[in-house]
Design a protein around this nucleic acid. Structure first.
Lengths: 179, 179
DNA sequence: ACGGACATGTAAGCAGTTACATGATTGC
DNA sequence: GCAATCATGTAACTGCTTACATGTCCGT
């Protein structure tokens, strides 16, 4: 993020929350020690600024830091250990009442809808404000579209799955009634 | 997993690798201490078995354990902190040569294709062997289809993105040539 | 005889989070 | 005057991974 522009720790946190949060986030506490370490290693430099008595430490990337970032960006991305508590719970859906599984799916559908809407707000309100000459715009728009398309695909799968569960429920009910 | 059937630690590991690995995995070393703890807490019981001199400790869930699992399954799934090194690298694609971004996307496309094929093998070879009377089958098939649909959606996005990058590259080349 | 799968476990180390701690500035 | 946001940091804890350690059984 410092390769994009000089920032304070707090600003990195802010930027992360409104840009990469859906695929990468760091906890607030981790940022300041990390910046200190990076400066010690010569990958960033910093200068103090004051607004009245309020301190702000602005960090800037060095050539050594930029070299390392670019080398890392070129390296093949390593597999991230994906974890979805939602899918794990669904996987063991047979252990609970079908209605409860249904509720889980609906709750998840709501979350996905909210997520998609958030992306669409960024697409319509924030992205247009970035100048077309900004070389980052293309890539930010790409990761945004990734989020949107995955949400849509997940919505379709959820709707189908909800139907399947409902069908199953009806079958079970008629079986129970006739037995 | 013990709610589904009694298993040894090793078998849990095996089952995890061929069923939930794409959305949930635990490291090999974590399983044995965890089983010990669960037994101490009265959520599972165990009995030793021998095949010759080779020891196997089979764990079985208790009613208390089952109660807890079912309560947990009913609780709303908490957000998992998603991380995608691939997306993070793409987000900063402007910092490196477009050809290198292109290579990253193509490498990722290959990975997604392999993943999708793995799912389809399970769908065609393993799933049909599970009896339709097995109540877990429906849910296992659902999580499997989740994986397949997400892969397909990701493939489409990747193909589009590759085109966009190529277009950009051509524009840059003509600009460079004419300047 | 040897490699690979079966089978269980320990110990050290690290990465990351939660909670804590402090204080300034801005807007209502 | 108070709450929210701006702004930076520390310390304890914890959960997880890596590496290590041991031995059996089976197939070729």
């Amino acid at each position: 993020m410092l390769a994009e522009q000089p920032r304070s720790g707090y600003e990195i946190l802010q930027f992360m929350k409104q840009s990469t949060a859906h695929f990468w986030q760091e906890s607030d506490a981790s940022i300041y020690p990390m910046l200190k370490l990076l400066e010690k290693e010569g990958k960033v430099t910093s200068k103090q600024e004051f607004q009245g008595k309020r301190e702000r430490r602005i960090f800037e990337i060095t050539q050594a830091g930029l070299d390392e970032v670019q080398a890392w960006l070129t390296l093949p991305a390593q597999e991230d250990n994906r974890r979805s508590e939602f899918l794990l719970k669904l996987f063991f859906g047979a252990l609970i009442d079908p209605q409860k599984v249904h509720a889980q799916l609906q709750e998840h559908l709501k979350k996905v809808e909210v997520e998609k809407k958030n992306y669409q707000v960024i697409e319509k309100k924030i992205l247009p404000k970035i100048l077309d000459t900004n070389p980052h715009k293309l890539f930010w728009s790409m990761t945004l579209h990734y989020g949107i398309t995955q949400c849509i695909s997940e919505q379709h799968w959820l709707e189908k799955s909800l139907e399947v569960i409902q069908k199953r429920e009806k079958q079970n009910n008629t079986k129970t009634a006739s037995s």
